[in-house]
Amino acid sequence: MSSRLNGAQPYALGLFRFAIGLIFAIHGASSLFGVFGGREAEAGAWPGWYAALIQLVCGSLVALGLGTRIAAFLASGSMAYAYFVVHQPEALTPVGNGGETSAVFCWAFLLLVFTGPGALALDRLFGSRAERVPAEESRREPATAGVSA
């Protein structure tokens, strides 16, 4: 049973990444454009409009698995800011200050910074190609070294 679960781990992580990124992007879109039942933030208003932009862009990148670690790092930082600057002054705990969503997003994205995107990510597609090129070049070096010597 454990080996089956371990084999599914990259796919579970990929599904987690996709779901968290999509929910985050939808949250940003709702604040930027007033869709999905959200209220449109005033363009350029600090911090709401900029937070919504970060949510849309970083959430989309994380969902696609493109630049996952960097996008997740930025998303995690924005949620830490939201928690400590917007919610924490209201009350000590996330339940008391309404910051549960910010806290959960912060930790979820921080997890992705350290675990990476999992399976079925665009990072993996481009990463596998980049890894093949240096491997092919390293195979040519000994032949080239023998010819020039």
Rank of each mutant, 00 (worst) to 15 (best):
M1R: 02
M1S: 12
R4M: 14
R4Y: 09
R4Q: 11
R4N: 10
L5W: 13
N6C: 05
N6W: 09
G7V: 15
G7S: 15
P10M: 04
L13A: 02
L13Q: 00
F16R: 00
R17W: 07
F18H: 04
G21F: 14
G21L: 13
L22M: 13
L22V: 14
F24T: 04
G28Y: 09
L32M: 09
F33Q: 05
G34P: 03
V35W: 15
V35D: 09
V35R: 07
F36I: 11
G37Y: 08
E42F: 02
A45I: 10
W46T: 05
P47H: 13
P47Y: 15
G48N: 11
G48M: 11
A51V: 15
L53I: 10
Q55N: 12
V57D: 13
G59R: 04
S60R: 04
S60Q: 00
S60I: 02
S60L: 14
L61Y: 04
V62E: 13
A63D: 09
L64H: 02
G65W: 13
G67P: 08
G67Y: 03
T68C: 05
R69H: 07
A71T: 02
L74P: 07
L74I: 15
A75T: 06
S76M: 10
S76H: 04
S78A: 11
A80S: 03
A80C: 05
A80N: 02
A82R: 02
A82Y: 12
Y83R: 03
Y83C: 08
V85L: 10
V86S: 08
V86Q: 12
H87A: 04
Q88C: 05
P89F: 04
P89M: 03
P89T: 02
V95P: 02
V95A: 13
V95H: 09
V95F: 15
V95R: 08
G96W: 07
G98N: 14
E100Q: 07
S102A: 14
F105M: 05
F105G: 01
C106V: 03
C106W: 15
W107C: 07
F109V: 04
L111C: 07
V113E: 06
V113P: 01
P117T: 08
P117L: 14
G118V: 14
A121N: 01
A121Q: 03
A121V: 13
L122H: 04
R124Q: 07
G127M: 10
S128D: 11
S128H: 05
R129D: 08
R129K: 07
A130M: 12
E131C: 10
E131M: 14
E131I: 15
P134T: 01
P134Y: 04
S138G: 02
E141D: 15
P142Q: 06
A143Q: 13
